[in-house]
Amino acid sequence: MKIRIGFILFFCIALNVNASSVDTLVVFSKAMNKEVKNVIIKPDSYTSSGQDYSVVYLLHGAGGNHRDWLGKVPDIKRYADIYNVIIVCPDGSKTSWYFDSPIDPKMQYETYMSQELVPAMDKKYNTKTTKKGRAITGLSMGGHGAFYLAFKHSNIWGAAGSMSGGVDFRPFPKNWDIPERLGSYAENKEVWETNTVINMVHLINSKSLKLVFECGVDDFFYDGNQRLHEKLLERNIPHDYTQRPGKHDWNYWDNAIKYQMLFFDDFFNE
């Protein structure tokens, strides 16, 4: 009897630690003519009726998928509870870069994210359906993607973040399948220049988009992030930028997401 009571107590404690729930939402993309999987993390307080929830879209990096964040940083389930938000982890393919490829019809992820996934989320779940209730962030390729999408669609997302983001991929003209998405840099320079985040600052309306980003000083993307920070300063665009010791790895992103979730919580509740 004592053993059984102890087991039940342990089981109840375990449930309380991971109180949030996880779904997989499959969305058919008309733009790409394929199904796309998305991990959905709902807070413990979520019910099918009642209050509407703010949503954080959390993007993976190159080579990853929609399960990366949940598998590598299981604490994101706890953050859904702490901040009482829904967290969405879309599958951005291994190397989509979250834009619409001009040469690959199966890689139309700007359209998917902005025109297909967001409406599907708002239809399926109790979400706040204005930009004041949406934020987007990601790591590496996903950091580029979050800024790219938010800069171009500030009517959808009110806050955006980037962690070790590839905010200027021009110094890496042969890496991460970018030539397969945009064509070679030598032959398609204008397309590369148009689609790299650091050249999209002119799209930002500083009054309509809250920005937070960071990068480790030992990261190969550090120089690009530093230059983006300086460019935003020159244009008097408000933003939070942090640099700290760290490399391009999950140890860094496990720590970084804590600060970004706090930033988004402030935005949702201001």
Rank of each mutant, 00 (worst) to 15 (best):
M1V: 01
I3Y: 10
R4K: 05
F7T: 02
F10T: 06
F10L: 15
F11K: 00
V17L: 14
V22N: 02
L25S: 03
F28P: 06
M32G: 04
K37Y: 11
V39Q: 13
K42C: 07
K42V: 12
P43M: 10
P43Y: 10
V56M: 02
G63H: 08
H66N: 13
H66T: 02
W69C: 04
D75G: 15
I76F: 09
I76R: 05
Y79S: 04
A80P: 05
Y83M: 00
V85F: 03
P90C: 09
G92S: 14
T95G: 11
Y98C: 02
F99P: 05
D100F: 11
S101M: 12
I103G: 00
P105G: 04
M107E: 11
M113G: 05
S114L: 10
K124M: 12
N126M: 14
T127N: 02
T127K: 03
K128G: 00
K131G: 06
R134M: 08
A135S: 14
T137F: 03
S140Y: 08
G143E: 00
A146T: 00
A150H: 01
F151H: 12
F151L: 10
K152H: 13
H153D: 08
S154E: 12
G158V: 13
A159T: 08
G161D: 04
S162A: 14
G165S: 08
N175I: 09
N175L: 15
W176R: 10
W176I: 02
W176N: 10
S184L: 13
Y185P: 05
V191S: 14
T196F: 09
V197Y: 06
I198Q: 05
V201Y: 01
H202I: 00
L203V: 08
S206K: 15
S206W: 05
S208P: 02
S208K: 15
L209C: 01
E214A: 04
E214I: 00
G224L: 02
H229L: 07
K231H: 10
E234Q: 15
H239F: 10
G246K: 10
K247T: 14
W250E: 10
Y252C: 12
N255V: 13
A256D: 12
I257L: 15
L262D: 08
F264G: 00
D266E: 03
F267S: 03
